[in-house]
Every structure is written in C-alpha cells, then in structure tokens.
Nucleic acid binder design. Structure first.
Lengths: 237, 237
DNA sequence: CGAGCGATTGAAAAGACTCAACCACCGTGG
DNA sequence: CCACGGTGGTTGAGTCTTTTCAATCGCTCG
C-alpha cells in the first residue's frame, strides 16, 4: 500500500511554511525530523482508517486527501479535504480514542508520519504549538457546524453549488485554466461530500450545466459563471 | 435581560469539579475569581448571539443551555446542549472571530462570565489548561462530524430516536421518574435539533408513541422502551 | 472484442415539506 | 368567573424533493 519515500527534511520543506508546523521551534523541528517517516500513497489508498488506533499524526507533503466517515449502511460521508501542509489524525490522538474518521489519497501523495511521542513532546515543549492546535480544531469545528446547518436546511442544489465553490477555494484551479477545478472527484465522491445519492448528484450537475453555470469533461469541472454559482448556492448577496 | 447574581467563588464551586476548570492552578483560579461576573438568565433569554464579538467565555453554574446556529432562512439549528460545568464561547475567542453560534437558556440559568484577558492569561500560565481546551474542542468536533453523517444519511425517525437518547445522556432523567427526560424542549426546538420541520417532528413523535417506545405529557418525554428506541435509532447491535 | 466500472437516464415510490386548518391550553382582562 | 385571544401543538392534504431500482451508455483495459 505505502512505499517509503526519499528522506525529507522539515527544515528544507517549503510546505512547512504554510502549515501548522510553521512556528515550531528548532528543537521540536529537530525532534520531528529525526523520528518521522515519509511515505508515498497511491491514489485511492487509505492513509488511516476509522476505528483503528492512532499511533501518530500525518503531515501531507504533497497531494490531496479526503477525510471521511463511514455511515451505518456503509456509505461514506466526506467531512474534510486536506492538501499539502495540512496535518491529519491529531484529533484522535489528543482524545486518545480510535480514529473517528478515515483518510484516503485523492491522488498520489507523499505523507510524513510523526509518532505520537514526538507529537506530545512538541505539544509540551513548544510555546506556540498548543495554540496552533487549538486554532486548527477551532476552524474545523466551525466548518463542521456550518455543514450541519447546510445539511439540515439547504437543498441539494445549494449544497452542491457551495461544495464546488469550496473545492475551488481549497484546491484552486488548473494552471492555464482558471475556471477548471484542480481536484478530480468521482461522482460518488462528490455525492458523498454533498450528502446525497449519486443519481441525484448527477442530475443536479446536469441542471447546473444546463444553466451554463458549470461545464464538465469527465471528472474535470469548469466554473463558467462564478456569480451565478454563488447565487445558486444562496450565498451572501 | 440578565440580572447580576450573588457572588460565586470558584474555589467553593462544586460545579467546577466536573468542569473544564477542574485542574486549573490556584493562581489562575484566583485570577478568574477576581475578574469574573455572574449573571442570571431567565428561560429563553440569549446569553450570546451569533455575529457579535466575543468578550470572554461563559461558564454555566446552573441550568441548561442550547447552542444553535441560524440558517439563511432564519431557521435555527441546535448544534449542542450544555449544562452546569460546561464552558461556552471559547471557540470564537481563540479564533478571534465573531461568535459563529448563539446560546440561550433552556431554563433559568446562572452563568459566570470570564473576560477574554483572563482566559488568555490562564491559557498561557496554566500548565494543563491548553490541553483541556484541545480536548474540549476535539470532543465537540467529533460529535459534530457524527451529526454530519447522521443528517446526510439517516431518516428523521432514526435521528429523532438518537436525539432522545442523547438528551437522556446529557441531561439525565427526572428524580423519581427515571424514564422522564430531565429537559423540556418545545416541538420547535426538538425539530431544530433533529433537523426537520416541526410538523414532521410531531408526526414522528406520534409514531414512536404509537409503538410504545415513548410517552409524552406536554413537554415531558418518557422513554418507555430503551432497547426499542436504540433499535429505532439503528444504533449498535 | 468483451467484461466491467463509472456515469447517466427513466420511472416509480418514499420521505419530508408546506400550507392550512383545527385543537388545547393558558393567562388576561372584562 | 368566564369569554377572549394568543401561543404552541396536532392533523390533513397536496406537493415537491430526493431516493431507489432498473436499465442503458460509454469508456477503458485486458
């Protein structure tokens, strides 16, 4: 599943500068560097799985990752998208429980693993890191609560429009085509972000295409009318 | 709206012992005690409101509180229930943004207000408090993510069953009637926990009554068949 | 070329929402 | 004391959204 990658050094890691490890002190960085392991994950492969015991945290060096939770009937619900610089798995680690979510690579990834002991060591010794973790959790909680309201109150069409805008926000657009979302998701995956059945998602996408708000070519989605999509999502204004 | 209550001392506060302030050191406790303000809130009154700027955190000394978010169409969605010993409003404080949720008293409450400066001071000086906050946020995030999956995948009936079980878990049952939930919610409020229309909620409650899983008398809800309700919620087994 | 998977479409059914009416209870004011 | 009005709760009917099941399509890969 995972093949170990060439050695990476946090000091030299340009990703670190816009990550949670940006302000970590030199000693902590050293500790991380000497204990971490770097792994490559092929597209689709699971990085960690709901229900298993956390042994450390994951820091995405390269690639895109979905974080999802599996419902009773086996249907997945994507709860977060992560990218290079993001850290994963720390929530379960601090609560000392099995993972409450799974993470899988949306494309080929390189992910560093920082062992539990090191993580807690940094949490204890670094002056700023606890506050960083607090802010990360705080941001995730806020987004989760917003998603709760959306799922409870908004129709599929609006949720889809907002999802597309969020994907654009998080992952950006293709080089050379600023309308094309830089992330490729299957219809199933898109449905499990929006929280609907795949067929409903397909039909709703077809609606947005018919209205010339978006265009699709296989998994590539282009946003043709940003304002229109914002409007379709019933956002601000 | 709020009337200041008689002075309370954290040292002597029995609620503190099962709260986030349990392990706070003496100096911090002192700082909290000398800067905090205690207020009484009548049932229904708002403790803080989504969109306004946080000035500190709230510590519930007595009473039950709902935390909710208002959707675009003005419908509320309850995202959390709080009780004596719980602290509120710290999420917005640490992220330095306006409140992303509102809080209101479900019954007459006494709530202490700890100013921002004190909160951050304790966060900095107390050895354990940052970790406590991390764990609180972590727990809330986990519950929020579970709720996301429920809203996306479970029908109203199952969500209602689970909601009743959660209310029992959080607030317990009446003295002398271990089947009766200790919290009284309006149908509107119950609907805005479950995430459905009031009429649908009423009908679904009627269903559960017809099946002798619960009984109601005004706002009082009695759980007649715990196993049955667990089953109706499609939980474990 | 054929198997298989993901995407799409159609049709029917289920679930939930809205609108409207009605009921029951409660407190107020005459 | 009782009629009144208001609020919250309940019920009914119809509609709309969304789901489900089934079938088809298109593409990729062996």
């Amino acid at each position: 599943m995972t093949e170990s990658s060439e050695r990476l050094y946090c000091n030299a890691c340009e990703m670190r500068l816009n990550s949670a490890l940006k302000d970590v002190d030199t000693a902590s960085l050293e500790a991380i560097d000497t204990t971490k392991a770097c792994n490559a994950f092929k597209k689709g492969h699971v990085i960690f799985e709901e229900g298993s015991a956390p042994k450390g945290i994951f820091c995405i060096h390269d690639g895109k990752v979905k974080v999802y939770k599996t419902g009773d009937e086996g249907r997945d619900q994507i709860v977060r998208f992560a990218k290079a610089g993001d850290i994963l798995g720390y929530r379960s680690l601090v609560s000392g429980e099995p993972y409450s979510v799974s993470a899988a690579a949306l494309e080929d990834c390189v992910v560093c693993f920082i062992p539990q002991a090191t993580f807690f060591e940094v949490l204890k010794s670094d002056e700023h890191f606890p506050m960083t973790v607090i802010r990360l959790l705080s941001g995730e909680l806020q987004r989760a609560q917003k998603q709760i309201v959306n799922l409870a109150q908004k129709p599929v069409r609006e949720r889809l429009a907002e999802t597309l805008l969020i994907l654009r926000e998080v992952y950006g657009t293709d080089d050379g085509d600023s309308a094309a979302l830089a992330v490729k998701l299957s219809r199933d995956e898109l449905a499990s972000v929006v929280g609907t059945a795949t067929e409903t998602l397909v039909r709703t996408i077809a609606d947005l295409k018919r209205e010339n708000l978006i265009a699709t070519d296989k998994k590539k989605i282009r946003i043709l009318d940003l304002e229109g999509l914002i409007h379709a999502g019933n956002l601000q204004d």
